Amino acid sequence: MRPPSRPPHNILIIHTHGGMGDLLLSSVLAEALHRCNPDCRVTFWAQQKFAALLDHHPFVDARLDLDPAAPLRDNARILRAEHFDAVLIPWSVSRHAWLTWLAGIPVRVGQGGRLTYSFLFTHPVKVRSRQGDVTSHWTDSQLDYARIIGCAAPSDLLPVVITTPEEREWAGNRLQELGFAGKRPRCGLHICKGLAVDEARWPLDRFVDIAVGLLGQGFDVILTGTANEQPLTAQVAARAQAMLPTDASARLIDFAGASTLRETAALIERLNVFICPDTGTGHLAAALGVPVVSIFPVRSDIPARWRPAIDAHRIIRPVRYECAGACVKEKCPRFTCLLHIDPDEVVAAAREIAKKC
Results as ranks from 00 to 15, higher is better:
188 G>D: 02
154 P>T: 12
188 G>P: 04
228 N>W: 08
157 L>D: 01
203 P>M: 06
196 A>Q: 14
168 R>H: 09
192 C>Q: 09
217 Q>G: 11
227 A>S: 15
183 K>W: 01
211 A>D: 03
228 N>M: 13
144 D>S: 03
228 N>D: 14
144 D>V: 00
209 D>H: 02
177 E>D: 15
168 R>M: 06
175 L>R: 14
162 I>F: 01
193 K>T: 14
220 D>R: 03
154 P>N: 10
197 V>Q: 09
218 G>R: 09
195 L>E: 11
213 G>E: 10
228 N>S: 14
182 G>V: 06
225 G>C: 03
186 R>T: 10
196 A>S: 14
212 V>W: 10
159 P>H: 02
193 K>M: 12
144 D>E: 11
163 T>E: 11
230 Q>A: 14
196 A>N: 15
202 W>F: 10
187 C>I: 08
177 E>M: 12
158 L>Y: 00
154 P>Q: 11
143 L>D: 04
160 V>F: 07
197 V>E: 10
196 A>M: 13
158 L>N: 01
163 T>H: 04
168 R>W: 00
186 R>F: 01
206 R>F: 05
148 I>S: 06
200 A>K: 14
157 L>Y: 03
203 P>W: 07
222 I>F: 06
157 L>S: 01
170 W>N: 06
193 K>Y: 13
153 A>Y: 11
152 A>G: 03
167 E>G: 02
176 Q>W: 05
147 R>E: 10
160 V>P: 10
190 H>N: 10
180 F>Y: 13
148 I>H: 08
200 A>E: 14
182 G>S: 15
192 C>R: 07
162 I>S: 11
216 G>W: 05
166 E>N: 05
195 L>Y: 13
177 E>R: 15
201 R>D: 08
232 L>V: 06
221 V>F: 13
226 T>A: 13
162 I>K: 14
179 G>E: 07
174 R>V: 06
170 W>P: 07
166 E>Q: 12
160 V>E: 15
212 V>N: 10
209 D>N: 09
159 P>F: 05
208 V>W: 00
155 S>Y: 04
147 R>W: 11
179 G>I: 05
227 A>E: 15
198 D>G: 15
208 V>L: 01
223 L>N: 02
215 L>S: 05
185 P>H: 01
220 D>N: 14
192 C>N: 08
208 V>P: 00
169 E>Q: 14
209 D>E: 14
188 G>N: 03
181 A>W: 06
191 I>H: 01
150 G>F: 12
225 G>H: 04
171 A>Q: 02
189 L>P: 02
225 G>K: 07
168 R>A: 07
